[in-house]
Simulated assay, not measured.
Amino acid sequence: MTLERVAPGVDRWVMPEASMSAVVVADAGEALVVDPGTLPARAAELRAAIEARGDRVVAVAITHAHWDHCFALSAFAGLPMLAHPAAIDELREHGEAQRAAVLGFAGPATAEAVRALPIVLPDAPVPSRRALRVGGIEVGLDPLGPAHTGGDLVVHVPTAGASIVGDLVETADDPQADDSTDIAGWLRALDALAAHAQPLLVPGHGDPCGHERLAHHRALLGDRRRRV
C-alpha cells in the first residue's frame, strides 16, 4: 500500500478491506486523514507513511459510519475525530452489529483483528457547514443526509479542486444501499454535490471521477425510488 496522489495535496491509500480509499489532505506539514479504514494496524501503517514524508496528522474525519471507513479510528487516539452527528449516533447504536456482520464473512486473520478492535466514537460532531484549517489551506466540512446513511460528511478541498465524497459516489460499483439509506435524501445530496462540490470527486471505492458520475447515480437511485 502506498500513498497515491490524486490532486495537489490530496492522496489516497487503498485498504485491502473492501478496497476502501483512505484519503489524506496535507499542507505545510499538517495532514487530515479522511476515513482511516477497518483495522487499526493498517491505519497505523498509513499514519507512519504520512509522518515519514514529514507531515503530522492533526485530525481525522469519517464520511459515514460504515465499518470499512471508521473501525480503525483508534489508531488516531487523542486527535479530533470529526463526523456528522447522525454518524456518531449510528456507530454508537449499531457498531457492534456491524462488527458481528464483518465476522460473518472475514477470513480468520481479519476476523481476529476485528474481534479485538475497540469501536471508537468520533468526538467532534459537525452539524453544519464549517471550515477546518490544515496547514495553510482551508478545508470545507459539509454534512449531508440522511442519504447513503443517516449522516454523510463531504470534505471539500478547494485548493486542490477536489471533494472527498465517501460512498455518496462510487466508481468501483453502483451505489450501495442498506437499512440506513434514504433514497430521497441521497438524491438531494447528489443535487448538493452538483451545486457545491469541486470538479474532482474522490469516492470511497474506486477511482476519482468528475460530476458525470452524479447523473449515473441519480438515474439509478431515481429508478430504485420509483420501484419502491
Rank of each mutant, 00 (worst) to 15 (best):
V10F: 11
D11S: 14
V14I: 15
M15E: 15
P16A: 10
S19W: 12
S19R: 15
S19T: 01
S21T: 12
A22H: 04
V24N: 07
V24M: 02
V25T: 09
G29V: 11
G29L: 02
G29Q: 11
E30R: 10
P36H: 04
P36R: 07
P36I: 15
P36D: 02
G37C: 02
G37P: 07
G37R: 09
T38G: 02
T38D: 10
T38N: 12
L39F: 02
P40S: 10
P40T: 10
A41H: 09
R42P: 02
R42H: 02
A43N: 09
A43R: 05
L46W: 07
L46D: 12
R47H: 01
R47K: 14
A48R: 15
A49T: 08
A49R: 15
A49D: 15
I50Q: 05
A52D: 14
A52V: 01
G54R: 09
D55L: 13
R56P: 00
R56M: 01
R56S: 13
V57H: 03
A59D: 14
A59P: 00
A59L: 08
V60P: 08
V60G: 03
A61D: 01
I62W: 00
T63K: 11
H64P: 00
D68L: 04
H69E: 13
C70N: 10
C70Y: 00
F71R: 08
F71H: 03
A72I: 12
L73F: 07
S74G: 03
S74Q: 13
A75C: 00
A75T: 06
F76M: 04
A77P: 03
A77V: 12
G78P: 07
L79M: 07
L79W: 10
P80Q: 12
P80A: 09
L82P: 13
H84T: 06
A86Q: 12
A87V: 13
A87T: 13
I88E: 08
